[in-house]
Amino acid sequence: MRVTMGDVPLSGFEEALRTQRARYPGADPAWRPGWQPVHTVYVPADRFEAGTVADWGGRALALARAHLAGPAEVADVFGVPEALAPAVHERVLRKLGREPVEDLRIDFEDGYGARPGEEEDADAVRAAEAVARMRAAGTLPRRWGLRVKSFADGDPARSARTLDGFLTEVTQRCGGLPPGFVVTFPKVLMEEYLPAFADLLARLERGLERGLGGRAELRLRFEAQVEAPQTLAFLRGDLAERLEGRLAAAHFGVFDYTAAIGLPPREQRLDHPACDHARHVMLTAFAGTGVELSDGSLAAAPASDAAADVRALWRRHAELVRHSLAHGFHQGWDMHPSHLVSRFATVYAFHLATYDAYRERVRAWEERRAAGGGVMDEPATIRTLAAALARADAALS
C-alpha cells in the first residue's frame, strides 16, 4: 500500500493509551462487569448481632409466604408479566431461604447516632465478635463492612478509632480479614476528605498486617457516599486512579441530598428529577472506571402486617427499584426485611424480561446474521447487551 507519512511517531499516543487502560478499564471491548450485590442492607451497630442476617431472611420469607401465595399475587403486586411470574415467585422464595442479604453494612453513622465514646468502643468490639461468629458459621454475606462517621461532622478521630478497633478485633479473631470487606465513607463534602481517608486506610492496613505477624496481606477499600450537591462538583473519572484503587464504589444518599438542595419533605424521594440529575452525574463521572454505583433507599416499612399495607409498601419499593434499574443503577439500599422481597422480585423480573432477546441479538451479531425485528445493532450496543447478560447471570445465579 502506498503511504505519505511513512512511520508515524506514536510515543505520545502510547502513553495516553496506557493511562486510558488504567483509568477506564471498562472502555475495553472485552470488559464485563464482575459480581455486584443488588442491594446493601444497613443495620444500626447497636442492633447488629450474629443472627441478624438469618432474622432478616426469616422475617422477609414469612411476609412473602403470607402475602404472595403464588405467581398470581406476584404478577398483581409487582406488575410482572404472567409468563414470568412463576419463575420470579420461585426464585424469590429460594433466595430468601438461601441468601437473603448479599451485602451487609454495620452502621455507626446516621442509623447509630452520637454516643459516648466508651459506648461506641464497646459496640465496635461487640460487632466484631458477631462478624467472627458469622465467619465461623458460614453466614457472613459475600460483601460486608461498616459505615463510619463522616469527617464532615468534625470528629474524624472518632471515625478512625471505630474503624481501627473494629478491624483490629476482626482480624485478630479471624486470623485475617474475611473477603468482601468494604468501608462506607459518608458525607464527602470536600474532595480533600477522599485522599485523607485513603491514606488512613493505607496506614491502618500496614498496622493490621504487622499485628498479624505478616501472615496475611490486606487491601482496604471504601465506597464514597454522594449526599450533597457539593460532592457532584469533584466527581471525575481519575478519582479511582488518584486514590490508588481504594475507591470501590459511590453510593447515592437520597435524603441528605434532597434535604441539602431544599426539597420539601414529601419530595425527598428516589424518583425525584433532582435525584435523576445526581445519578446521571455519577454515571458520567465514573463511566468505564470500574467504580460500582449504588442508589439509595426507601425510608418506609409496612404500616402493619395486613396484606393491604404490606403490598402497598412492596408496590412503592418496586417502583423505585425499577426506576433505579432504568437509570443504570443496579444496586440500592434496603432498610427493612420487607424490602428484600420487593428488591429480589423486581430485579429478577427486570433481567428475565429481556434475557432471551438480548442473548439472541448477541448470537446474531457473532454469527453475522440479522437478529430479527428490524434491529440493526452497533458494536457499542452489542457490548452493552453482553454486559447486561453478564450482570443478569450474576444476579440470577
Rank of each mutant, 00 (worst) to 15 (best):
D103Q: 05
R315S: 11
E244N: 02
L189H: 01
L61W: 04
D256E: 04
R59T: 08
H327R: 14
E360S: 15
S324G: 15
E319V: 11
S297H: 14
A287D: 09
E118T: 08
R215S: 09
D305H: 14
T184E: 03
E99S: 04
G253T: 05
L63K: 13
L63F: 08
A128D: 05
L235P: 03
V3E: 15
L243G: 02
W31A: 10
S397Y: 11
D155A: 00
T40E: 09
D121Y: 11
V281T: 10
A16E: 15
R135A: 13
A202P: 01
G70M: 06
P186W: 04
R363I: 05
G58M: 09
R391I: 03
A371Q: 12
Q268K: 12
G207K: 07
L283S: 14
L200K: 10
A160G: 05
P100A: 08
A249I: 01
A390Y: 02
R269M: 12
L340N: 15
P116W: 00
D103R: 07
D55C: 05
R206A: 04
G58S: 02
R142Q: 07
A83S: 11
F255W: 13
G175P: 04
G51A: 13
R2A: 08
D123C: 05
R18P: 01
A274D: 11
R311K: 13
V77T: 12
D55W: 14
A127R: 10
V3H: 09
T284V: 05
H330L: 12
C275F: 05
A380E: 13
G262E: 00
L10S: 07
G12F: 14
P179T: 00
R147G: 00
H351V: 03
W333Q: 13
T231S: 07
E49R: 15
P141I: 02
D256N: 12
L84N: 02
L10Q: 14
A259N: 05
V182E: 08
L239A: 04
G214N: 02
S159C: 06
R359S: 13
R115Y: 09
A62G: 03
R215H: 02
R98I: 00
E90Q: 11
E73A: 10
Q331N: 15
Y24I: 09
G58H: 08
F222L: 02
A130T: 04
D276G: 09
A306S: 11
E49P: 03
L63Y: 13
D164G: 04
L247D: 01
V92L: 09
R236K: 12
